[in-house]
Amino acid sequence: MIKATPKPLEEIINYVKDFNKILVAGCDGCVTVCEAGGMKEAKVLGSALRLYYTQAGKDHEVVETTITRQCDKEYLAELKDMVENADAVISIACGCGIQYLTEMYNDKIVFPGVDTHFMGINADRGIFEERCAGCGQCVLASTGGICPIARCSKRMLNGPCGGSEAGKCEISKDTPCGWHLIYERLEKLGQVDSFTKPVDPKNWRTSRDGGPRVIIREDLRKAEPQHGSAHS
């Protein structure tokens, strides 16, 4: 899932200090799982903002809420009255949710309350690790199920580089070398042979490099009525 962390409170206060009516909008999706933008975090932020405005002697009205997903307009529609009633909205959803909320309520000023980082897993309570870089063309089948793009610091397709040492990446002793992991796994699977063939340059057009990406799944789109059917 998407991983985010709360922005420093000072930064958020700085965004909203000149507004009075604030809506803190959380999301029950990914940001709830990584404890950055769910109901609990919304309540903490709301409370903190009330404390700030009160001690600063400013009139205020801070409301907290969450919706099922901020990346769906059906759920965002539920916020209509609350958004209309606010001077500014702080969205603590991921960057996608924040933007979609902004798109839906275009005349309202919306601030981000979290920093969105990556797609990853929950390694342990409070430990989130990146696993997928969303390159749009999955190579896991040939790399033992370990992604060289997300897990090699140089996104090499023919690793490991000469800086790999004792299974660790040259950037930090705390970062496992992705290619070391790939090699170990290929060995376990008896597929080391596949390691010896050079992998051609990757087509990055399906990645961020191709520009903003859109997926259109015709099979999922609403069906057009068929003309000339038997019952017409």
């Binding site: 420093p8 409170l9 000072e10 206060i13 903490v44 903190a48 404390l51 001690q55």
Partner: peptide
Amino acid sequence: DILAATGV
């Protein structure tokens, strides 16, 4: 930290 940031 929050109380510090909010001036409490």
